[in-house]
Amino acid sequence: MTVYPNATPGEQRRVHIREVGPRDGFQNEPETVPTADKIRLINALGRAGLARIEIASFVRPDIIPQLADGVEVLRGVDLPAGVERMVLIPNSRGLDNALRHRGLFESVALFVSASQTHNQRNINRTVEQTMADVAVMAARIRTEGLRLCAVIATAFGCPYEGPVPMERVLDLAEQFAQAGAVEVGFGDTTGMANPAYAGRFFAAALDRLPGVEVTAHFHNTRGQGLANAYAALEAGCGSFESSFGELGGCPVPAGSTGNIATEDLVSMFHEMGVETGVDLPALVDAARDAQATLGRRLTSHSIVAGPIPWHALPADHRVVC
């Protein structure tokens, strides 16, 4: 591992990062990304060292046509050994479809919104109806030997209902854990978290979910995404989700940016001395390739600035601000 001059001294830490751009990112694009481009970009992410990639979702193609080629993409990718391929499943019908292609992925994400209104508008079900289906799906997923992960959206606030009580979110997390989820992710769906609350939240989540991997999923809607990730890290969280190029995000509020950029997250962690297993220059190249493929400027900072070139700076380099 490279030792950076400004790295935080002390015990070496390592985190896991799941790349969600191929699913969460591409589904929010106004036009469908060609299958061959998706495959090329996902392969680049795998070669950059991202060991967890969310590739597709088994949602009705008339609902999310941008991901209608999910099976073709899963069949076409050529990833290094050990890379975990994840798919998102909305309901039992989606699970039926997914299990027809059982050999193409290793982990499954089930999801619910902590907000009743958001859950109804997102999947046209109450939270209670969703969790009843989760119990049925979870048993089938465990029987198939797949890794079961859970995602709780609007965990830090809802654009329709406002604040979401922490206790409600953690109760849902415990229900997922009881159903057999080995990982629970908490989504800041519209970027309503702040660092102080994120720190308190993840300290509480880690305490309530012993033996379960707790994952942070932040959006950069109001520019606080990396600060929230730092707060979660300091609270003890060691698992994160992000999207290369800062792709994706919830369409509410209008004009919001996407998930925190994977390359910005990795850059921050590396500068702090936190290992990710990711080759940052290769990841930045993949994000720049995505920008060229989409034909528009993406909002990742690292696409513009790149990694800090410590090796190229003179020994007496000083900056006066």
Rank of each mutant, 00 (worst) to 15 (best):
Q116I: 13
A179S: 14
R222F: 08
P165K: 12
F111W: 05
V284L: 03
A229S: 11
P251E: 08
F156K: 01
M86H: 14
G236H: 11
R208Q: 13
S300L: 06
D96H: 11
M272E: 12
I260A: 01
V278Q: 02
N43R: 10
A155G: 05
T32Y: 05
T190V: 14
S92N: 15
S92W: 07
D289V: 08
F240I: 05
F218T: 00
S242E: 07
A135D: 12
R288I: 10
R60W: 12
Q66A: 08
T8C: 14
R208T: 09
G238C: 10
T190H: 08
R222Q: 11
L172N: 04
Q12F: 13
R121L: 13
V182G: 15
L148Y: 10
G248R: 00
T189D: 04
P22N: 12
A132C: 13
I55T: 03
A216F: 02
L209P: 02
N119W: 04
V266K: 00
L110T: 03
A132I: 07
A205E: 00
L74V: 05
T257I: 08
E161D: 14
V266Q: 00
T221V: 11
F26G: 00
R102F: 15
P30A: 13
V184N: 01
V33W: 00
E213K: 13
E84P: 07
A312N: 13
V15L: 04
P30W: 03
A68M: 07
G10Y: 06
P307K: 06
L170N: 05
D188H: 08
I89N: 01
G255N: 14
N220K: 04
V274S: 10
G249W: 00
A196H: 13
T154L: 03
A232C: 09
R75H: 06
N97W: 12
T154R: 01
P22G: 06
T262D: 04
A312L: 15
P80L: 12
V59F: 06
A229M: 05
L226A: 06
F105E: 01
Q291E: 15
D96P: 03
M272L: 15
A173P: 03
G255E: 11
F111P: 00
V3C: 09
R47P: 02
P314Y: 08
L313W: 13
I42F: 04
S239K: 06
G277A: 10
L88F: 14
Q178G: 15
A177T: 10
V214Q: 03
N259L: 09
L209M: 11
G255T: 09
F26D: 00
G157N: 11
S256K: 08
T276V: 10
F240C: 01
R318I: 08
V151S: 15
F269N: 04
V83N: 01
G82I: 07
R140Y: 10
P22I: 03
L104M: 11
D316C: 11
E72L: 09
P61E: 09
P253H: 12
M268Q: 07
A36L: 13
L45S: 05
V319F: 15
E54P: 00
Q66G: 02
A193W: 01
G258L: 05
R100Y: 12
V274G: 09
A68I: 04
P195S: 09
Y197D: 07
I53N: 00
L146M: 10
P165W: 09
A193T: 03
N97V: 11
R13P: 04
S302H: 04
H16Q: 15
S107P: 03
H118F: 15
C321S: 15
P251T: 04
A315F: 06
P163I: 11
I42S: 01
